[in-house]
């Protein structure tokens, strides 16, 4: 890997490998509670995502995985620590680290193509060019022929494809996906997963993917980060390869290993909640 970006005036942190596309450094997030105290949502999260890597964040609800993703997206600021993209600190949301949301977040007053054109429109791309590119992007997600449909005429799966096409239209350095398929039914979900896997090989996109489905994470990722809760943190890391995916017994083994980590995180919480109520 030769494309190393490290600005001269700010030496890259030593702890982070030089080729990191995204470097999460000591990210801690505290929220003020209603009673005047603080709630520790994330503590000391460190992680480096390599160029073209597909990393999944898996964890029980409340482990702060969405908070972490929103910090990487620049939609929230960490209380301590920072997030670097190509060595530059992320200071706000932007199309080069676009987010694909669970609830699609499409603009209902725009047609399918006009939704995909939105990021190009705000970037000042000309009308004809953005239309052409939007049609290409729609073709990539298998929605050619639906360009001029209204959003409400589409099924949930097709709406998520539209959101995906809109994300691709940003030509992002990294795509951040927040449980993008958890609203879909089982069959649609499989189809969308296949689509994402294919897109990923086509575009060689760096992806950070939040999910609560272990199977989905195994199916799609190069690396799975398992998060624990109270406070939210990364507790384990698992590597996944195509070779592993080809062997059913090894997949089962991996799934069991991830689940045993998750169980350790979930059981004490359930016990604690039982005591409280």
């Amino acid at each position: 890997m030769t494309s190393v970006v490290a600005s001269a005036d700010r030496p890259a942190a030593n702890a982070v490998p030089q080729q990191a596309k995204i470097a999460i450094e000591g990210v801690t997030k505290e929220f003020a509670t209603e009673t005047g105290g603080t709630f520790l949502a994330l503590t000391e999260v460190n992680c480096a995502v390599a160029d073209r890597e597909f990393v999944s964040l898996v964890g029980p609800s409340g482990c702060g995985k969405t908070t972490l993703l929103e910090i990487v997206a620049g939609l929230q600021t960490p209380t301590r620590g920072r997030v670097l993209m190509d060595g530059e600190e992320i200071e706000g949301p932007g199309p080069d680290h676009v987010v694909i949301f669970q609830q699609y977040a499409l603009f209902p007053w725009r047609t399918v193509a006009a939704n995909v054109e939105f990021p190009m429109e705000v970037a000042g791309v000309g009308r004809a060019e953005r239309r052409e590119r939007a049609l290409e992007n729609l073709k990539m997600v298998g929605l050619d022929g639906f360009a001029d449909h209204h959003i409400w005429q589409l099924s949930g799966g097709m709406q998520q494809r539209t959101a995906l096409a809109r994300g691709i239209a940003c030509a992002p350095k990294v795509m951040l996906m927040d449980e993008p398929f958890s609203g879909a039914d089982a069959i649609t979900r499989e189809i969308l997963q296949d689509l994402l896997a294919r897109l990923r090989t086509e575009t060689r996109q760096t992806i950070i993917f939040v999910t609560h489905s272990v199977d989905e994470a195994i199916r799609l990722s190069d690396r799975i980060l398992v998060m624990g809760t109270r406070p939210g943190r990364i507790v384990s890391t698992f590597d996944v390869t195509d070779d592993l995916r080809a062997h059913g017994d090894r997949v089962t083994e991996l799934r069991d290993a991830i689940w045993s980590v998750l169980r350790k995180e979930i059981v004490p919480i359930i016990a604690e909640d039982d005591r409280r109520t």
Partner: peptide
């Protein structure tokens, strides 16, 4: 949120 991440 979506619009902001899309560059608006």
């Amino acid at each position: 949120k979506a619009a902001r991440t899309l560059g608006a």
